[in-house]
């Protein structure tokens, strides 16, 4: 009787584990399309201050924006283009430039609030780099 119970419990555990694993795998495969949603890897700006993160996924797939919302009116598609410009500053954002176009307190949280949502800092950047390293290994 006890053995039966053990087998039953083990079996149920294994089955549910396998189902969950399959589900998560399936989800990951259908989840993100870079052509529709933009590059998967986050963009990290280090100028004019370290370090600000931007994730396409949050803005496109999650928030429903499409490429044309920002490109090329607010941001050029070329990697690192904004960083090279002198007006890529918080002051410009407050006037509605770059991220400030939406992040004005009505469409999305204002640029002068919730600083650390985007400013991940030197610490966040370092962690991202080290996690990136380990993530690559595990895949």
């Amino acid at each position: 009787m006890k053995k039966m119970l053990l087998v039953l419990v083990l079996g149920a555990g294994l089955l549910s584990g396998a189902l969950l694993f399959a589900a998560s795998n399936a989800q990951e495969k259908t989840a993100y399309d870079e052509d529709a949603y933009g590059p998967k890897a986050p963009i990290v700006w280090v100028k004019p201050v370290r370090s600000v993160i931007f994730e396409h996924k949050i803005h496109t797939m999650d928030a429903g924006l499409d490429c044309g919302s920002c490109h090329d009116s607010l941001f050029e598609m070329e990697n690192g283009a904004a960083e090279k410009k002198d007006d890529f500053t918080m002051a410009t954002l407050y006037k509605g430039g770059y991220c400030g176009s939406c992040h004005d307190g009505s469409a999305a949280f204002a640029s002068n609030t919730r600083c650390t949502s985007c400013h991940i800092g030197a610490r966040g950047h370092a962690r991202l780099n080290s996690q990136g390293g380990t993530a690559v290994k595990s895949h």
Binding site: D66, S69, C102, A107, A108
Partner: peptide, 16 residues
């Protein structure tokens, strides 16, 4: 969704 549409939606952040 375009920016114009987005502006009409209500924000879901802590500001509300």
């Amino acid at each position: 969704m375009k920016i114009d549409d987005l502006e009409k939606t209500t924000s879901e952040d802590l500001g509300v």
